[in-house]
Nucleic acid binder design. Structure first.
Lengths: 97, 97
DNA sequence: ACAATTAGTCAGAAAAACATGACTATCAAA
DNA sequence: TTTGATAGTCATGTTTTTCTGACTAATTGT
């Protein structure tokens, strides 16, 4: 009962705003992503920024962090259910561009 | 032939990112918007930021600036054709939120 | 044993975005 | 004629975002 000129789209837009988030999100659509791998794939990016982006995407619950206790012990980030809901919008954006 | 990891959605996302752009865009969907009117409608906003947002939305060709030479001589900003293409995506975003 | 890879953190600097208050200039209404 | 509305600009300052380089710490490959 407090916001009157609420722009519902705004929140989602903000979640995907930031210099590296769209690219991270797009890569995550095609399967689990990993920290160092992202650093290599996204040219021009840097540790700090990717780390922060991943943390925020996780907080916003678009990505889920998973520690893989298997063979070469590592961490991967997967699109959450909420994240998957954004895929169609993302695709639509891609088709428009 | 130069970008390999291009994220097509990125550009559009960037166009709608910024503190006031989503709200301005949403208001523009419902008809022409005007500078002072936006300042009144969008609480917390300020001249400078709204002016910059309008200028950028215009540069990005999502809005078109029109000088109304009629009766009380003023300026209005309308959604361009390109801007209208974004409406469905925007709505989808709203429905998800 | 030594080097590389993984996945980060931390402090500090630089750059970009946003806000404030003062100011301009035209037009219309009281 | 003075006030209020229109639509801004400009200089400055604050805040937020992003980048850089050094560092940690566990694991894996040579």
């Amino acid at each position: 009962m407090e916001s009157e000129n609420d722009c519902k789209a705004e929140g989602l837009l903000k979640m995907l705003s930031g210099k590296w988030k769209p690219q991270i999100f797009r890569l995550a659509v095609n399967g689990p992503v990993r920290f160092n791998s992202l650093l290599r794939q996204i040219k021009g990016s840097n540790k700090q920024s990717v780390a922060v982006a991943l943390k925020e995407l996780e907080e916003q619950q678009l990505l889920e962090k998973k520690v893989i206790k298997q063979k070469p012990l590592h961490i991967e980030y997967n699109l959450s259910e909420k994240g998957k809901l954004l895929i169609p919008v993302f695709r639509q954006l891609e088709n428009l561009a």
